[in-house]
Simulated scan of single mutants.
Amino acid sequence: MASSKFSSLSPPIFSGDNYPVWAIKMKAYLRAFDLWEAVESGRDPPPLRANPTIAQIKQDSEDTAKKYKVLSAIHTAISDTIFTRIMACETAKEAWDKLKEKF
């Protein structure tokens, strides 16, 4: 259900102007979908232990998906011109930090 909500709301688009306003709006957008922590921490989820339970496997899958969802959200929230500056970034934190540094 959360994924359908995620796709129904559009993130704020950053075209290179007024980064501080976009950053505040984007943080709120990501927090609304419980994705901001993936940007803030920049860490991968801990590896599964031996003989994980089904609940642990499911949680690991959800945590892993979050890091790709948040990077995708950032990609979607920037213009193509800005995207070329972060397209080599492999994590949301790396992309966010690069945007913050440049703007």
Rank of each mutant, 00 (worst) to 15 (best):
M1H: 10
M1S: 11
M1I: 02
M1C: 02
M1P: 12
A2G: 13
A2C: 11
S3A: 10
S3V: 12
S3D: 15
S3C: 01
S4I: 11
S4W: 11
S4A: 13
S4T: 12
S4R: 14
S4L: 13
S4N: 14
K5Y: 09
K5W: 04
K5G: 08
K5V: 13
K5F: 08
F6D: 01
S7E: 09
S7Y: 04
S8E: 14
S8T: 14
L9D: 11
L9H: 12
L9G: 00
S10W: 00
S10F: 01
S10I: 02
S10M: 11
P11V: 00
P11L: 02
P11T: 01
P12V: 03
P12C: 11
P12N: 07
P12F: 01
P12Y: 01
I13Y: 09
F14T: 03
F14M: 06
F14I: 11
S15Y: 07
S15F: 09
S15I: 07
G16Y: 07
G16C: 11
G16T: 06
G16V: 13
D17P: 00
N18A: 12
N18S: 14
N18Y: 04
N18Q: 15
Y19L: 09
Y19C: 05
Y19G: 04
P20W: 08
P20S: 10
P20I: 12
P20E: 05
V21F: 06
V21G: 00
W22K: 11
W22A: 07
W22I: 03
W22R: 06
A23F: 05
A23D: 04
I24G: 03
I24S: 15
I24Q: 13
I24A: 15
K25Y: 04
K25F: 00
K25T: 02
K25C: 04
K25M: 09
M26D: 05
M26K: 05
M26N: 11
M26T: 05
K27H: 08
L30V: 04
L30N: 03
R31P: 00
A32D: 03
A32T: 12
A32P: 00
F33T: 04
D34H: 07
D34M: 06
D34Y: 05
L35N: 08
L35Y: 08
L35T: 05
W36F: 12
W36I: 06
E37L: 06
A38F: 09
V39N: 06
V39R: 06
V39P: 04
V39E: 04
